[in-house]
Amino acid sequence: EENEVNILWATHQTHHSSEDYNLSTALRQSAVQKYISWVFYLPMALIIPPSVCAVHLQFNLLYQFWIHTEVIDNLGPLEWILNTPSHHRVHHGRNLYCIDKNYGGTLIIWDRIFGTFEAEKEKVIYGLTHPINTFEPFKVQLHHFTYIWGVFWATPGFSNKLSVIFKGPGWGPGKPRLGLSEEIPVITGKEVPFNPKLPVHLCVYAVIHFSLIVTLYIDLFAAAATLSQVTVLLRIGYIILTLTSMGLLMDKRPEAARWETVRCTVFLALQKLGYIKTYPPMMFAYEVLFSLCIVFWGVQIMKQLTSSTAKRL
């Protein structure tokens, strides 16, 4: 299972990194997981007709979307057969009793058969055992790969290096395959999810700009067949830039002001050069909005520089 093999966990941990548990958690996926997940479906694909396999994959994925919720408590007798919201909450927990439990996608019977089932008990605390405390997308996506890279080179012996990759995330020389349970941080039940409080005006700002980027994302897919490769690449690059900058803003990082200035400037440049097109009235509105944003963030940068200079003096 992905949770028990370090390199596979690196591709899956993004999904588990959310410290909240709702339907948006189901959409929190790794950019590289699709290059690994085919391994799990290969045996089925070799036996079952392709059309049946394709339909199964879609229904299996759709089913798992709806179980990412705290709204549904208990489904009665169905809890014995299906992977329910209650069971999957355990799978997403970082409480000690939740670790490496309830792997099933649609059915929970396999966990009951193979001894990996655990019923929901005390309040589940969600997220990674060692929270990364950031919304910056590259770190959320890739931080465990960098961790494996560091441990791989720091661990002596070729067989031990292979174990770093293919044993559990908590493994180390002399430890069991899945690591030691006593090394997992103790959960008190009072943990608060990482959520830096932003001023109301920045929350409104983030909602507006995220809505704009979602619109651009939808338009990109709708018109991809008619766009040049350069246009597609530039729009994708701008979307990634926006997500990165918004992550820094959500983290309340001081460099967010510089990133937002660059991002807003890039948007205006792409619009002027014709790589982002919309209705003429909206183009004017975008020019006004993003120009005002550049001014706002420029003022924030000047304040930071003034404050930094005052501290040095």
Rank of each mutant, 00 (worst) to 15 (best):
residue 207 V to I: 14
residue 301 I to E: 11
residue 166 F to L: 12
residue 169 P to K: 09
residue 9 W to M: 02
residue 59 F to V: 07
residue 91 H to L: 10
residue 171 W to G: 03
residue 99 I to L: 12
residue 119 A to L: 10
residue 152 F to H: 12
residue 3 N to G: 10
residue 94 R to V: 07
residue 131 P to I: 00
residue 142 L to H: 07
residue 154 A to W: 12
residue 186 V to D: 06
residue 94 R to T: 02
residue 191 E to T: 03
residue 103 Y to S: 02
residue 6 N to M: 04
residue 65 F to S: 03
residue 32 V to R: 01
residue 129 T to S: 13
residue 75 L to E: 02
residue 267 F to H: 08
residue 301 I to R: 04
residue 147 Y to W: 14
residue 145 F to C: 07
residue 173 P to R: 12
residue 184 I to N: 08
residue 203 C to F: 01
residue 12 H to N: 08
residue 144 H to C: 08
residue 175 K to M: 06
residue 18 S to K: 11
residue 174 G to N: 08
residue 244 T to V: 11
residue 24 S to R: 13
residue 136 E to L: 06
residue 98 C to W: 05
residue 284 F to N: 09
residue 235 R to C: 14
residue 143 H to T: 09
residue 55 V to P: 00
residue 72 I to Y: 02
residue 20 D to Q: 12
residue 303 K to L: 07
residue 216 L to S: 10
residue 149 W to G: 14
residue 111 D to W: 03
residue 226 T to H: 14
residue 221 F to G: 13
residue 171 W to L: 09
residue 208 I to G: 01
residue 143 H to R: 09
residue 167 K to S: 00
residue 83 N to T: 15
residue 135 F to L: 04
residue 127 G to F: 02
residue 73 D to W: 04
residue 26 A to C: 04
residue 8 L to Q: 14
residue 159 S to P: 00
residue 122 E to T: 00
residue 180 L to W: 06
residue 242 T to L: 00
residue 212 L to Q: 13
residue 252 K to L: 10
residue 85 P to S: 02
residue 234 L to W: 12
residue 83 N to Y: 09
residue 164 V to L: 04
residue 254 P to D: 03
residue 241 L to Q: 14
residue 229 Q to W: 10
residue 51 S to A: 11
residue 228 S to F: 02
residue 246 M to C: 07
residue 108 I to D: 05
residue 281 P to N: 11
residue 189 G to C: 12
residue 41 Y to E: 09
residue 21 Y to L: 12
residue 16 H to S: 10
residue 162 L to R: 08
residue 275 Y to N: 13
